[in-house]
Design a protein around this nucleic acid. Structure first.
Length: 915
RNA sequence: AGGCCCGUAGCUCAGUUGGUCUAGAGCGCUUCCUUGACACGGAAGAGGUCGAUGGUUCGAAUCCAUUCGGGCCUACCA
C-alpha cells in the first residue's frame, strides 16, 4: 500500500523530483538516426543573460514552454528543448567593472587580456545561477546540450558568419553618426535607445552675415553643438532667405566663416526656417553635410566632453558647455529667443545616460537584402505568428528598417575578425588571424578592438547550436525548430534577427522529409526559416498592473512564491492567467487558490489509496502508454458512463486549447473537471460501491477510480508536473511501467466513450439534488436531519433513471425516502420545479412566507423576462427567416420550458397566497 | 506624429468566428456544517447589463464610429 503523507507539502516533493529528472537525464535527446518516422518538436530556450537571476517573466515564459514541451513529448514527438545562456556584452562587462571599482580599479588598469580573464572568473562564480533556478521550475530541457554563446564552437560560427557576410558585401565599415553612450563608451543600436519625452527649449541664435549688417536667425535645441557648425541651411523655396543664397555667416563664439546653403533639411514652417548644420553631431546634418561636401567638426570626446575643437570650451561636460555657450551668446547679443519645446530624448537602454549622436568608425550590416527575405517568410505563411497582431508589427518593422550597427567598443564579446595592417592601414577580414598583409606584405597586424553586438551571436543560435557550419544530422532533424516562444520586447532584437540570419545562411537547407511530414509541416516549402511557428507571450506585471522593475521595488520573486505555495501552484497560476495577448497582473491570491487545488488532488489521491488495495494489479503498464480515452474502465452504472463521457470531453477541449496556445483554457478546463466533476460528484457517487463487501460491486468501482485518476494525472501533468509525478509513482508502488509520468502518453479523447444520454441524465440528477439542498437550506433544516420528499417526474424514462439512482439522491441530498407521485405534489413543505420534475420537501417548519414569496416573485420576473425576449424574437419574421434553424429550434424548446415553469411558479405563488 | 492594446461582479480575470449569455470563474462576502479524502474542505446564497454615446443587424459584452479613462510600442523635424 503506497503512502502519501497526510498533508500536502509541495516543497519536499518538488525538490526531489526536480533532482530526479535532471539526474536520470530523462529529457536528453539523442540525435535520431536516418529512418526516424516519429514527429519532431524542437524549441530553443531564449537564452537568459549570464548575469540574470530568475524573475517572474522567466518563470511565466518557461512555464508556457514547458507545458508545450511536455505535452508534445507525451504525444510521442521526439522532443528537444535546448537550453543555454547569453554572454550579454554590456551587462556582464558592467558587472565586472563594478566589482573592480570596489577594489579601486578600472578595466583599463588591467588591460584587455586580464579583464577578460576576470570576466570568465566572474562567470564561473556568479554566472548561470538562473539555470539552476530553472531546474527548480521543472523545466524539462536537455541539459546535455546546454550552450553558452561564447563557447568555442559557437564563436567559430560567429566568425564564419561575419566573414561570409563581409565577402558577400553585406558588411561594411565606415564613419557614420551612431548612437553613442558616453558612459558605456560604446556605440549602441537604434533598438538600444529608449526615447523619453522631456520639456526642452528651442533657442534662437542669430548669426551675422559676412559683409552685411544683417543677421540670420537659426533655431536649435542643442546650442553647445554650434561650436561644430559648418553651415547654415535654408530652404531653396523660402522667399525670406532668397537674397542670402551663397552668402557666408560668421559663426559666433568661434569666429569662423561658414556658408549659407540651400537644402531640404531646412523646413520653412519650423522655427525660423533656418537651421544650423553640424554634421558631426546630428544624423540629419550628417546627411546634409554629405550632400554638400561639408567638413565634419567633432567637438566632443568619447565621454561627451568638449574637445580641443571646441576652442575655449574644451574640457567642459556637454551640459556645462551648453550653459556657458548660452551665457556667452546672451552677453554678446546673439541669443534672441527662447521657447519651450517638447522633445524626445534618447537614453541608453542599459544605463539611462542620454545618448549622443556621434561620428565614429563602425561596422554595419546592409540590412535590406536580409530583411526582404525575412519579410517574405512571414508574408507567405512559412512562419506563423500568434497572436496575429504581432505579425503586422513584425512586417512593418522589416519594411522600415535601417542598417544595423554591429560593432561595440567593449571588451567582453565576440571580437570582430578583422585586422589592421600597421604599415598600409589595410583592413583584412579573415576566419583566423592572418600572418601578413595581402596588400603590402607587412607582418605587423593588429586585430580590430571592437566586439560584436550581443544580438549578432544570439541571432544565429537556431542553427549554430545544431552544429552549423557543418552539415550535421542534428540540423537535418531539428532545423527548423517547430516553435519559438518569446516576449514581444525582444521581437526585433532577437526574433527578427534570427529570421534574417536563418533565411540567409540556411538557404537551400532541407529538413529530413519523413520527419517534416510526420511533424505536420509537410506542406511547408521553405526549410531555411529558423522556426515554423512563433508564439508571443504577454508580460507579467505586479498586482497593480505596473511593470515589475528593481528600481520600483515591486518585483515579485518567483522563488519566494514557490516557497510559499509550491511550484505546481505557481505554474498553474501563470498558465491559468496566460490568455494570449493580454498582460497578466500577478496576484498571489490566485496562487493560493491553486495550491488549494493541488491540495484537493492530493487528498483525492489519499482517498483513492485508502479504498483500493491492489493498485499494481489494477493498472497494467499498457495503461500509461494508452493515448485514446480511458482503458480498464467499466460502465457499470450511469455515473460511470457520465464521468467517462465528461473526461473525454475535457481531454478534447484541452487539446484544442493547447493547439491554439490558450493555456488558460486548458488549465481551467482541467481544474473544472478534476474538482467540479471528478471530486465533487463522481467520488461522492461511488463511495458506497467502493466500500461494498461484494466484489462484483467494489471491483469495477475501484478499477474505475484508479484508471480515471491515472489518466487524469497524465492530462494535468504538463501544467503541474510535480504533484502528478508524485501520485503517479505512488500508484505503482515503486514499480512504474515507465521511469516517469513525463514519458507516458497524453490522453486523447475517444468519441466512442462519449455518452450524451448519460450527461443529460446526470444533469437532471444533479438538478434534483441541488433543488432539495436548496430547499433544505432555505427551511433551515437541521443538517443531519433526513427529510422525506415527494417527487413527480414528468417522463417515465427519467423517472426510471431516478429510481435507479434513488440511493444517490437520498445520500447526497440527505433525503429519508422518496415517494414518487403522479402529479405536482402539494402539501406541507416547500417545493421546487424544473421543466422535468417537481419536488416537494416535506418539512414542518415555520416557512418564512415573505422570503419564499419574495424568491418566487424574483424567479417569475426572470422567467417572464426570458419569455418576453424569446417571444419578441419568435414573433419576428426576419428572425425566423434569417436565423439558423438550430438557433430557432433551441429558442422554441427553451420557450416551452419557460412557459411550463411560469405556470408552476404562478401556481405556487397562488398556493402560498403571496401578494 | 503614427500604430497597438485594455476598460465585464468589491478585487483579479475568462467570455474563439455576433445567436441556449436569462453574462462565467477564483478570491473576498453572507448563512450553515468539524459527517473517516480534503476547513488549503463541504452545502446554500448575495452581487455585474458588460466605460459612455450613436450606429450596423432579425439578434451585440462580442462588429463599426465617436468619446472618456488607463497602458504600451514605433518616430532623425532642428
Amino acid at each position: 500500500m503506497p503512502e502519501l503523507s497526510k498533508s500536502y507539502e509541495p516543497g519536499a516533493i518538488e525538490a526531489r523530483w526536480a533532482e530526479f529528472w535532471v539526474k536520470e537525464k530523462l529529457f536528453s535527446v539523442p540525435t535520431p538516426p536516418p529512418g526516424e518516422t516519429r514527429p519532431v518538436f524542437t524549441l530553443l530556450l531564449p537564452p537568459p543573460n549570464v548575469t540574470g537571476s530568475l524573475h517572474m517573466g522567466h518563470m511565466f515564459e518557461q512555464t508556457q514552454m514547458d507545458i508545450m514541451v511536455r505535452w508534445h513529448r507525451m504525444r510521442g514527438f521526439v522532443t528537444l528543448w535546448l537550453p543555454g545562456m547569453d554572454h550579454a556584452g554590456i551587462a556582464t562587462q558592467l558587472m565586472v567593472e563594478r566589482q573592480l571599482a570596489k577594489e579601486g580599479k578600472k578595466r583599463r588598469d588591467l588591460g584587455r587580456e586580464k579583464f577578460i580573464e576576470r570576466v570568465w572568473e566572474w562567470k564561473k562564480h556568479y554566472g548561470g545561477r538562473i539555470l539552476d533556478q530553472m531546474k527548480r521550475l521543472g523545466a524539462s530541457v536537455d541539459w546535455n546540450r546546454e550552450y553558452f554563446t561564447m563557447d568555442e564552437n559557437l564563436s567559430r560560427a560567429v566568425r564564419e558568419v561575419f566573414v561570409r557576410l563581409f565577402e558577400e558585401g553585406l558588411i561594411y565599415r565606415g564613419k557614420y553618426i551612431v548612437n553613442w553612450c558616453p558612459r558605456c563608451e560604446t556605440a549602441i543600436s537604434d533598438l538600444e535607445v529608449k526615447h523619453e519625452e522631456v520639456a526642452g527649449k528651442l533657442w534662437e541664435i542669430r548669426y551675422p552675415i559676412v559683409g552685411w549688417s544683417e543677421f540670420i536667425t537659426v533655431a536649435t535645441t542643442r546650442p553647445e553643438t554650434m561650436l561644430g557648425d559648418v553651415a547654415v541651411a535654408v530652404n531653396e523655396n523660402d522667399q525670406r532667405y532668397k537674397q542670402l543664397h551663397g552668402k557666408n555667416v560668421l559663426l559666433p563664439l568661434m569666429n569662423r566663416e561658414i556658408p549659407i546653403i540651400t537644402d531640404e533639411l531646412a523646413q520653412p514652417e519650423f522655427g525660423t526656417g533656418a537651421v544650423k548644420v553640424t554634421p558631426a553631431h546630428d544624423p540629419n546634418d550628417f546627411a546634409a553635410g554629405k550632400r554638400h561636401n561639408l567638413p565634419q567638426i567633432d567637438v566632443m570626446d568619447l565621454n561627451a566632453r568638449m574637445n580641443e575643437n571646441a576652442g575655449s570650451y574644451a574640457g567642459l561636460d556637454r551640459y556645462e558647455a551648453r550653459k556657458r555657450v548660452l551665457a556667452d551668446l546672451q552677453e554678446q547679443g546673439f541669443l534672441v529667443g527662447e521657447k519651450n519645446h517638447a522633445l524626445a530624448l534618447g537614453k541608453c537602454d542599459r544605463c539611462g545616460t542620454v545618448v549622443e549622436p556621434r561620428l565614429s568608425e563602425q561596422w554595419f550590416i546592409k540590412i535590406k537584402p536580409l530583411a526582404d527575405r525575412a519579410r517574405e517568410a512571414v508574408e507567405s505563411g512559412e512562419i506563423t505568428i500568434v497572436p496575429d497582431n504581432y505579425r503586422q508589427i513584425y512586417l512593418n518593422w522589416m519594411t522600415n528598417i535601417y542598417d544595423w550597427c554591429i560593432s561595440r567598443q567593449l571588451w567582453w564579446g565576440h571580437r570582430i575578425p578583422a585586422w589592421t595592417c600597421e604599415g598600409c592601414k589595410e583592413v583584412i577580414v579573415a576566419r583566423e588571424a592572418p600572418t601578413r598583409c595581402d596588400k603590402c606584405g607587412g607582418s605587423k597586424l593588429e586585430q580590430v578592438s571592437d566586439v560584436l553586438d550581443t544580438w549578432f551571436s544570439s541571432g544565429l543560435l537556431p542553427f549554430t547550436t545544431l552544429g552549423w557550419p557543418e552539415k550535421t544530422r542534428d540540423l537535418e532533424v531539428f532545423y527548423p525548430n517547430l516553435l519559438m516562444i518569446t516576449g514581444f520586447d525582444i521581437l526585433f532584437f532577437w526574433l527578427a534577427r534570427m529570421v534574417m540570419f536563418g533565411c540567409h545562411f540556411m538557404q537551400g537547407h532541407e529538413q529530413d522529409a519523413a520527419i517534416k511530414q510526420a511533424s505536420g509541416e509537410g506542406d511547408k516549402k521553405n526549410d531555411s526559416v529558423p522556426f515554423r511557428h512563433v508564439y508571443i507571450h504577454a508580460l507579467v506585471r505586479d498586482a497593480d498592473r505596473q511593470k515589475m522593475s528593481k528600481t520600483k521595488g515591486n518585483v515579485v520573486d518567483p522563488l519566494d512564491i514557490i516557497r510559499r505555495f509550491g511550484t505546481d501552484a505557481t505554474r498553474f497560476t501563470l498558465a491559468a492567467m496566460a490568455a494570449p495577448g493580454t498582460d497578466i497582473a500577478f496576484n498571489e491570491n490566485r496562487t493560493e487558490g491553486y495550491r488549494a487545488f493541488a491540495n484537493k488532488i492530493w487528498n483525492a489521491a489519499r482517498f483513492m489509496f485508502m479504498n483500493v488495495d491492489h493498485v499494481k494489479q489494477r493498472i497494467g503498464p499498457s495503461q500509461s502508454s494508452q493515448q485514446i480515452g480511458i482503458s480498464g474502465f467499466t460502465n457499470a452504472r450511469m455515473e460511470d458512463r457520465w464521468i467517462l463521457s465528461r473526461f473525454n470531453r475535457a481531454a478534447a477541449d484541452v487539446r484544442t486549447a493547447l493547439e491554439t496556445f490558450r493555456f488558460h483554457e486548458a488549465a481551467n478546463r482541467i481544474y473544472d473537471f478534476f474538482w467540479g466533476e471528478f471530486c465533487d460528484w463522481y467520488i461522492e457517487l461511488i463511495k458506497p460501491r467502493l466500500v461494498s463487501e461484494d466484489e462484483k460491486t467494489y471491483a469495477p468501482a475501484r478499477a474505475n477510480i484508479v484508471n480515471l485518476f491515472e489518466t487524469s494525472l497524465r492530462l494535468l501533468h504538463p501544467v503541474m508536473p510535480f504533484i502528478t509525478e508524485e501520485i503517479w509513482q505512488a500508484m505503482y508502488d515503486g514499480a512504474p511501467p515507465f521511469k516517469s509520468i513525463a514519458l507516458t502518453g497524453y490522453p486523447e479523447s475517444d468519441w466512442r466513450q462519449s455518452d450524451p444520454a448519460a450527461e443529460t441524465e446526470m444533469a437532471i440528477l444533479q438538478d434534483l439534488i441541488v433543488s432539495v439542498r436548496n430547499v433544505r437550506a432555505e427551511l433551515k433544516v437541521e443538517p443531519k436531519a433526513k427529510v422525506p420528499i415527494e417527487l413527480f417526474v414528468h417522463e417515465p424514462d427519467i423517472r426510471r433513471m431516478i429510481e435507479q439512482n434513488q440511493g444517490a439522491v437520498e445520500r447526497l441530498a440527505n433525503v429519508e425516502a422518496i415517494s414518487f407521485v403522479d402529479r405536482t405534489p402539494t402539501g406541507k413543505g416547500t417545493s421546487r420545479s424544473t421543466s422535468r420534475f417537481d419536488v416537494l420537501v416535506i418539512y414542518e417548519a415555520k416557512v418564512d412566507l415573505t422570503a419564499e414569496c419574495e424568491r418566487l416573485k424574483k424567479e417569475l420576473e426572470k422567467i417572464e423576462k426570458g419569455i418576453a425576449s424569446g417571444q419578441r424574437q419568435l414573433g419576428n419574421e426576419q428572425f425566423l427567416a434569417k436565423a439558423p434553424q438550430n438557433v430557432v429550434d433551441n429558442l422554441r424548446k427553451q420557450q416551452q420550458e419557460l412557459a411550463l415553469l411560469r405556470e408552476k411558479t404562478e401556481g405556487k405563488l397562488k398556493e402560498l397566497s403571496c401578494v
